[in-house]
Simulated scan of single mutants.
Amino acid sequence: MLRERDRSERSGQPERPVPAEAAGAVAGAAAERGGADEETCGKLLDRVDRRIGQLLNAERARWSAVDPRVAVPVTAVAELVVAGGKRLRPLFCVTGYLAARPGAETAPAADDAVVDAAAALELLHAFALLHDDVMDGSSTRRGAPTAHTAHAARHARHVWAGESRRYGEGVAILAGDLALGYANRLAGGLPGPAARVWHELVAELIVGQQLDLSLAAESDADPDLARWVAVCKSGRYTVHRPLALGAALAGRPDLHPAFEAYGVAAGEAFQLRDDLLDVFGDAAATGKPAGLDLGQHKMTLLVALAAARDPRVARLVGRGGSADRDPAGLRAALLASGVRADVEARIDALVADARAALADAGLPDRWRLRLGELAGRVAYRDR
């Protein structure tokens, strides 16, 4: 059911000098271990996709037996999942788990737990996207119509009673609720430390969304609050908490401080790249409309930083401003403000901070390097 992901990544080079006479042996052993690590990670991620597919297929069959209409929200979740996505949260969860138990003997029960946890993270992400798209009025996601758009159009085609927009949004909200329910079902067997990470992650995501809505509604361009939204709603939920979840399942709570420092920095870089892609990215590559956040008057960290340094941007995003009516004008002001270069420099610094956070974490070099590569992957992506 689920499409194979692209797991291609750049290969890293050891940062510590190796004596010349041993370089060949070390490089060969590192390549062998790295290849085995990537294969193990890939197998677990494939199991994550299968786990999600089995759950959604079973649920769709179960509810379709009652009436095909009952299975509509299950199908909406499944269509979003199979449409693609980067699978970053499962990737960080599995990587955190494997990095915390390098060289350990196979532990089927622990592997099963991390597969369920990573699958729960992807379904939690589906919940967030389905609801986000309704709140943002987005027409496309991952290159396809959003759930609320597709079902509003279906309502209109059949000339059903009531308002098409409300029907489409209702279907999408129920699909998001169902995705959250499935995520909690998969996470229901997590042991105590991992369960605490999970519950904190879910709460952070939702309250971060609330502050995001409030800042947009009130036209509050506060860089500190915008950063809090970026870290809480996106950074922790994308990088920090999935890593901590994997480490908790591996029985390594001692890694949590290093993973938090790494995850918060890499997660903020991830969100800043998201902000740049929204303003300056290619909709064909990102799979969603360009300038959507600008059109919704979102107080992203990019916009808040620009408003703090440029009076013209501050006027456009302030109360009574025209940002929600003229995203092209705001985009031009953002470009002229020079904030793009500042944000790129900030991303570079955050990636360096993320990598430095792992220096004394006690991780094997190959996992430290792999996580360093992943920080670059989320910070310098084009979609």
Rank of each mutant, 00 (worst) to 15 (best):
H158F: 00
H148R: 08
E122H: 06
A156W: 02
P145F: 12
A120D: 08
R101D: 02
T146S: 04
H148S: 06
V134T: 10
L88F: 06
A104K: 03
A110L: 08
A153H: 07
S138R: 10
A118E: 00
T95A: 15
T106M: 01
P108A: 12
E105S: 14
L129C: 10
A152Y: 03
E122A: 08
G143F: 05
A99C: 04
L98Y: 05
T106C: 02
D136R: 12
W160K: 04
C93F: 00
A110N: 02
A126M: 12
R141N: 07
E122S: 08
L130C: 13
H155T: 00
D133G: 06
A153D: 09
S138N: 08
A118Q: 01
V94E: 05
A107P: 02
M135Y: 08
Y97I: 09
D132T: 14
Y97C: 10
P108D: 13
E105Q: 13
A110E: 10
D116Y: 05
H155D: 00
H151C: 05
P145H: 13
W160A: 10
D116C: 11
D132A: 14
D111A: 12
D112V: 14
S139V: 15
R89S: 02
L98D: 04
L123S: 09
E105I: 03
L124I: 06
D116R: 14
P90S: 05
H125K: 10
A118M: 02
H155W: 01
A119H: 11
P145N: 11
D112M: 13
A104L: 04
H155A: 01
L98I: 07
L124G: 06
C93E: 00
T149N: 03
D136M: 12
V115H: 13
R142P: 07
P90Y: 04
F127R: 15
P102F: 09
L130H: 11
L124W: 09
P90M: 06
T95R: 14
H125P: 09
R89F: 01
Y97G: 10
L123I: 11
H125L: 12
F92M: 04
P145R: 13
G85D: 02
A99F: 04
A128Y: 12
A120W: 10
R87C: 04
G96K: 10
A118T: 00
E105H: 09
A161H: 07
L129N: 09
E122L: 08
A100Y: 01
E122F: 07
V114N: 03
P145W: 12
R142F: 07
R157A: 05
R142G: 06
L129S: 09
H131R: 14
